[in-house]
Design a protein around this nucleic acid. Structure first.
Length: 302
DNA sequence: CCAATTAGATAGCTTACGTCA
DNA sequence: ACTGACGTAAGCTATCTAATT
């Protein structure tokens, strides 16, 4: 599999080329060597491009999971108070961290700065703060694996937060309360969407089953009507199933002597549910179509 | 708080091109 | 010189999700 790391790691080169000037021997792309001040980590397992289901049923790209695990311990949302820590962490940056967003404007800004030291200013909790960045472009942050795990655990306990819980969680995660709030909102939305999909699938199957059943019943009705409307066939044949039914217990049984023809398949195997012949028997003609919900039996005392 | 929407990040695919046997 | 295999880079699309409205 072909793997390329276009915007990986700030120490690598950035290729700038217009579509009209595809890389060729004559027009090579502009190569910007962007401050290899940061040690590039060993290549993460990007070749694991298979889907993976998370504990809550969501599908994640395995490579993302892998990358996040690669990021383990990196809290890019941490507030800049822990400068030393972040400098340590900067050495293991990854394409999935916010500071990897080197495309476009930001990358150019960074190249102008000449090194990657200012990356650390992009501590996640402050990235979109109003007092920062003059440009109005919102920067997308990515929660770390640990942060996501903690948030997920918290969500499992209670899918809504009271202000106190929100503050505590925000403090624990090094995020702003608003970020925690937004995360819970989005998480609830995802849960709802997922449930809607499941419900939809269930209803779809129900509809299919009912459609099949309806088709089958319609066909049966058609066949039965055709038989009823053909007098020759109808008159010549003995009632196909001279079934008897006990009106008290509504059990149907075939005549004891009939062993051939359609009547040989009784609806229900006669069982000695009554002692002797104590129960009344009712002739049951299944060929007589009755309106739905109305059983038309010719009561024949016996 | 929810619903709808926006937008950044990234995986994965395709395509063009260069290199090499 | 031609050809097929292979690697690489770039473009594009789909998806996820943080953030906004």
């Amino acid at each position: 599999m072909m793997i390329h790391q276009r915007e990986d790691h700030l120490g690598l080169s950035l290729s700038l080329s217009s579509p009209a000037h595809r890389p060729s021997s004559s027009s090579s792309p502009l190569q910007l060597n962007l401050a290899p001040s940061m040690p590039t980590p060993s290549t993460p397992p990007f070749n694991l491009f298979h889907k993976k289901e998370t504990s809550d049923g969501y599908i994640l790209d395995a490579c993302r999971v892998e990358t996040r695990s690669f990021l383990k311990g990196i809290d890019v949302n941490r507030l800049p108070a822990t400068t030393v820590d972040m400098e340590e962490e900067a050495g293991v940056s990854s394409p999935n961290s916010t500071i990897s967003s080197v495309s476009g404007k930001r990358s150019l800004e960074r190249s102008e700065n000449g090194n990657g030291d200012d990356l650390l200013d992009c501590s996640r909790g402050l990235i979109n703060s109003d007092e920062e960045d003059g440009d109005n472009s919102r920067k997308k942050l990515r929660l770390s694996k640990d942060q996501s795990a903690i948030l997920e655990d918290s969500f499992k306990e209670h899918n809504t937060l009271n202000p106190k819980q929100k503050l505590a969680l925000a403090k624990r995660l090094g995020l702003r309360p608003r970020q925690v709030e937004v995360w819970f909102q989005n998480r609830r939305a995802r849960t709802k969407l997922k449930q809607t999909e499941v419900d939809c699938e269930f209803l779809k199957r129900c509809c299919e089953n009912l459609t099949d059943e309806n088709r089958r019943l319609m066909k049966e009705v058609q066949e039965l009507r055709a038989l009823k409307l053909s007098p020759q066939f109808y008159m010549q044949m003995t009632p196909p199933t001279t079934l008897t039914m006990c009106p008290s217990c509504e059990r149907v049984s075939a005549p004891p002597s009939s062993s051939t023809g359609p009547s040989s398949t009784p609806v229900e195997t006669p069982r000695p549910h009554h002692s002797g012949s104590s129960h009344h028997r009712v002739a049951f003609n299944p060929w007589a179509i009755a309106p739905a919900g109305h059983r038309s039996f010719d009561a024949v005392p016996h």
